[in-house]
Design a protein around this nucleic acid. Structure first.
Lengths: 140, 140
DNA sequence: GTGTGATAGTTTGATATCAAACTAAATATA
DNA sequence: TATATTTAGTTTGATATCAAACTATCACAC
């Protein structure tokens, strides 16, 4: 069975994790949000303020994609954009009150996801998995 | 470092694998093809003939997505669509000569990718990885 | 047989995504 | 100082993708 293949499993797992997160978020009332939007919001919870380029690097998406994603978050009232006064090329993105209010939802979804992901996976297996994945990631 | 997290590594690895495959294919003259197109062609190499629904199940993409993907492959002259004579609801997709001619390219790209993927990963680690991924895949 | 429901595909409208071209601003070089 | 280069971000055009609505065909019940 080719479904046993590690690479196709990685694709499938990623797909399922994404679907799980989007569904859980929707269940908790956060709707119309894709995982990339979630990645941005999640980053802003700890980083407070990021430029467009920093977000791009952080979520591994093209800067033009980030423009579209952040603009949607602005439309949803979850973040705001401000130009740097000194160097007006920079745009800072920060969470609004409404955006910050999502923190508990993220915590809950994130922990639910991890619980599901690692169900029946021992601590030792988790450590081994991580080590192997780090090596594979370095191979490219 | 959150980049150490298994789930984000899975996303990154999948992304890199996809990019690698597309680049290698392009290097060998197969251009304008996304991984999903490759998945369809690859499936048709062993299955000979598949319906749209079977392709959809095989590559885990919505049937409407498959319509678009297969139509592109038709435009590229790599596959052809034919209605079942008995039950005209079914559409059979098969490789053209030009499509079949891609087999060696697929073999070469696939083996190059596996080599890169598993570089410095021992046989034992590969087995363990597979076992853990199968468990995680079942968790969702 | 006629009508109801199931099934296979397509169409439509929306979104995420990228790459390339572009704008605007800052920095370096001459 | 003026010009060239780099940098940050946006715009534009194309594609993959999905969900929902739709079309066409088949199967089954009455």
């Amino acid at each position: 069975m080719e479904t046993r293949d590690a690479i196709s499993l990685i694709s499938k797992i990623r797909e399922k994790v994404n679907r799980f997160i989007v569904q859980e978020m929707a269940k908790q009332g956060v709707d119309g949000i894709a995982t990339s939007h979630g990645d941005i919001l999640y980053a802003l919870l700890s980083k407070h303020r990021l430029t467009m380029a920093e977000i791009s690097a952080h979520i591994h998406k093209d800067k033009s994609t980030v423009t579209a994603l952040v603009d949607k978050l602005v439309r949803l009232g979850l973040v705001k954009k401000e130009r740097d006064q000194e160097d007006t090329r920079y745009v800072y993105v920060t969470l609004t009150g409404k955006g910050k209010a999502l923190e508990p939802v993220f915590e809950s979804v994130s922990s639910a996801m991890l619980k599901q992901f690692y169900r029946d996976i021992t601590e030792e297996e988790q450590t081994i998995l991580l080590a192997i994945l780090i090596k594979i990631n370095h191979n490219f």
